[in-house]
Structures are given as structure tokens and as C-alpha cells.
Computed example of a mutant assay.
Amino acid sequence: MKYRRLGNSGLKVSEIGLGSWLTYGKSVNNQTAHDCIHKAYELGINFFDTANAYEGGKAEEVLGEALKEYPRSSYVVATKLFFPMGTGPNERGLSRKHIVEQCDASLKRLGLDYIDLYQCHRYDPEVPMEETLLALDDLIRQGKILYAGVSEWSAAQIEKAVGIGKDYRLRPIISNQPIYNMFERYIEDEVLPVSVEKGIGQIVFSPLAQGVLTGKYKPNTEKPANSRAANDATNFVINSYFRDDVLTVVQKLSGLASELGVTLSQLALAWILRQPIISSAIIGASRTEQIEENVQAVDIKLDQHVLQAIDSILEEVKDFAPLR
């Protein structure tokens, strides 16, 4: 495994991280989840991402239970808040009240004394950004969290947050967690340049486009049984990628990967890690074999010829943005 600093901070995270969205606490039983988390740790993954809203906190509980046998200093836990955790008007968003209460709730579910990286799961237009950032800074001062970050914030929002942080002498946010894969590249236009300028690391999710970039889904073919796409609990996200032109491009990329002697998922992850500002790519896994395959991507370097070949293939679906 290889490690990168998270933005301008001193925190080092594995280039491949393990997430729990749509898997742990939901479609994957707890024992399988524990096996995957243990395998990830064994292979050098030190970055584990979750969120309070993932199955109402169940994903946090599963992650905390699996990690408790390891030295606390040996892993980095990231969780998030924003989405509703109840029906009340203050049980959502990024108000000071919700931030403080949900931090305590996440700590309890995770069974931890502190959270390494606490992230704003989305931007909240109803709360002054100053209120949000001051609340996060207070949690850092109290030792409940070590670092703060955001997820899916725009370049303008990130730039504003950095400016407020400087004005109020706050500990800076260090990361942004956006979607990024070969089909969803919006961050390249503004988010990445601003993040480079401001020292904000990127922890990207859905790097394999919810499994589409493994090559297992074929054009004009039924979805394989037991796949995420065939699972009614998880297919609401992946279905947006199911277009014949997209799946045809995936087959061309798979052919290129074969020529290079790597799997398509390894090629897709190596393509993401070509960006120095990206600190970690978060994978999801329901089998330990998937983790063993994916971590090998950190050793793959793509030369300019290969990158040009990938861009040429992706040109066919350049305007396709499935989740935005």
C-alpha cells in the first residue's frame, strides 16, 4: 500500500480507502463486512469512510466493531453528517446543534474517543457557513475530532470556507469528498484547481462507477444475479449508468486493460490516482477478493500514451454525467 498526505495536513491516508455506502449495515451481512474490513486492514488500507446516515447509523456500528481489535493510532476513521437522522426540524443539516449532537452520536456508535476526519456530507444553504465552521473548530478544540472536511462542495463554497477559516483563525478544512470516476469528471473543471491552490485533498467516492467499471455488466445483456445492479436495495444509483453507449465504452476500456495486463477496476483506480491532489479513492466491497484486486492499482503507473487512449475511448460519452 502507498500513502498520501490529505491536502496540506500532516495526516497520511492509504491511496485506496474502504467505504460503507450501500454495503455495510445494509446489503452485506455483518460477518462479511467484518471480513472485508479485516482484509483491508491486513493489506495496508488505513482509511475507512462511513456516515451517520448510512442505514441510520448501522454502518458506523459495524465499522467500529470491526476496528476495535486494532491499535487506535493505526487507522483513520472518517464519518459525515448532513442528511436527516430523524423527523425533527433540527435533526438534519449543518447547524451547531446538529453538528454537536451527531458528533456525540457517531462517537458512541463507532465506540471511539475521537473521529479522525469529520465531514459535512453536503453543503447546507440554510445555515451560515460561519456557524458550521465554528462548530467544527470547537469539536477540534475539544478533541472530539482531529480534522474537518466537506463532501461534494463546489469550488466557490470551498474557497469561501477557506477564507472564513482564515478570517476567524480556525483550523482549516483539509479535504473534500466528491464523486469521481471515468464518467463523472466535473471536479476537473473548477474543484480540483481550487483545491490545489488551497491545499484541500480529495477523497473520491464511486471510483468504479458503482461496479460498472469492473466490466461485469455488458450491453444488451441481463444484469448478473447477485450483482449490485440486480439488488433492489442498491440499484437505484447504479441504474443511471445502464445505457448501451456507456456499457459499450466500458467494454473498450476492458480491452485496453487486458492489453496492459491489468483488470479494468485496476485501470480505473490507477487512472484516478494519476491526480496528485487525490489522496484516496474509496472502494466498496462485498467480498475480500475485490479488495485484494483493487489494492494492486497503487502499483500501476499509466504513461501518456495510455492516458491518451483512455481519453479517446471516453470521448464517446464525454457529456454523460449520471449522478448530477
Rank of each mutant, 00 (worst) to 15 (best):
R5I: 04
G7F: 01
S14Y: 01
L22I: 14
K26I: 06
K26F: 08
A40R: 03
A40Q: 00
L43M: 11
N52S: 15
A53Y: 13
L67A: 03
Y70N: 13
A78M: 08
G86E: 10
P89T: 12
R96N: 04
Q102H: 14
S106H: 07
L110A: 07
D113T: 11
Y114P: 13
D116H: 10
D116R: 12
C120E: 11
E126L: 15
E130Q: 14
A135Y: 05
A135D: 01
A135M: 00
A135G: 07
I140N: 04
Q142H: 11
G143A: 11
K144R: 03
A148Q: 13
G149L: 09
G149T: 01
A156W: 14
Q157R: 10
I158S: 12
I158A: 13
K160S: 02
K160N: 09
G163R: 09
I164Q: 00
R171G: 06
I173E: 02
Q177S: 11
Q177T: 10
I179K: 13
Y180P: 01
D189G: 01
E190K: 04
G199R: 09
Q202G: 05
S206N: 00
A209K: 07
A209D: 00
G211A: 09
V212I: 15
P219F: 01
S227V: 03
A229H: 07
A229F: 09
A230E: 05
D232G: 05
V237C: 12
V237H: 11
Y241T: 10
R243Q: 11
D244T: 14
V250S: 07
G255W: 06
S258W: 04
E259Q: 15
L260D: 05
W271F: 09
L273S: 04
P276K: 02
I282V: 15
Q290M: 03
V298L: 06
V306L: 01
D311Q: 07
V317I: 08
K318C: 07
